[in-house]
């Protein structure tokens, strides 16, 4: 590296760059926070949706599925599962409910979680709300 470029210049570049870009990031975050209500439809987060999210977390669904493309790649994307299932909450609930306890011979299977009907409804409500987030046109098609 050139002798004209001194260590103190390198140090200033580090501290200056870090502070500047972190502040820029914070600024962009403020702007994003202002924009988000129009995109996430938070007015539709009912107690059922919130409870559904908690159930989603407490059963580690993200350990197999992706949600808006984030998570594990072992099982289908669920950000758009509500639309994929024909906007039918009952179909989602019936699918989760019908998973065999011992799995399916030789194949990947979702565990049987023994959810109550109320819990199944909460999860479906959470997935319905998630499908309505403005995700900039992602995923490319219904298959997720």
């Amino acid at each position: 590296m050139s002798e004209n470029f001194t260590k103190s210049m390198a140090r200033n570049m580090f501290y200056g760059g870090a502070v500047f870009f972190f502040l820029l990031f914070v600024g962009l975050t403020f702007d994003t926070m202002r924009e988000l209500p129009k995109r996430d439809h938070r007015e539709n987060i009912t107690p059922e949706v919130a409870q559904g999210k908690l159930l989603w977390e407490e059963n580690d669904c993200i350990g197999c599925h992706t949600l808006l493309g984030e998570g594990a790649y072992f099982a289908p994307e669920l950000g758009n599962v509500y639309t994929r299932f024909g906007k039918n909450k009952q179909a989602i609930m019936a699918f989760i409910k019908s998973r065999p306890v011992d799995g399916i011979e030789g194949r990947r299977s979702m565990p049987q979680f023994n959810f109550s009907d109320e819990q199944l409804n909460d999860i479906a409500e959470f997935l319905k709300w998630t499908s309505e987030i403005n995700s900039a046109g992602w995923p490319p098609n219904i298959q997720g």
Binding site: A10, M13, F14, G17, A18, F21, F22, L24, F25, L28, D31, T32, E35, L36, R39, D40, L68, G69, E70, I133, N134, S135, A136, W138, P139
Partner: peptide, 22 residues
């Protein structure tokens, strides 16, 4: 490390494409 933070902090944006963010 200067380049790491100059590129990487705003680079967080590559996770903000499809999760409901602008």
């Amino acid at each position: 490390i200067a380049m790491t933070l100059i590129t990487g902090i705003i680079g967080t944006g590559h996770h903000y494409f499809w999760i409901g963010t602008p």
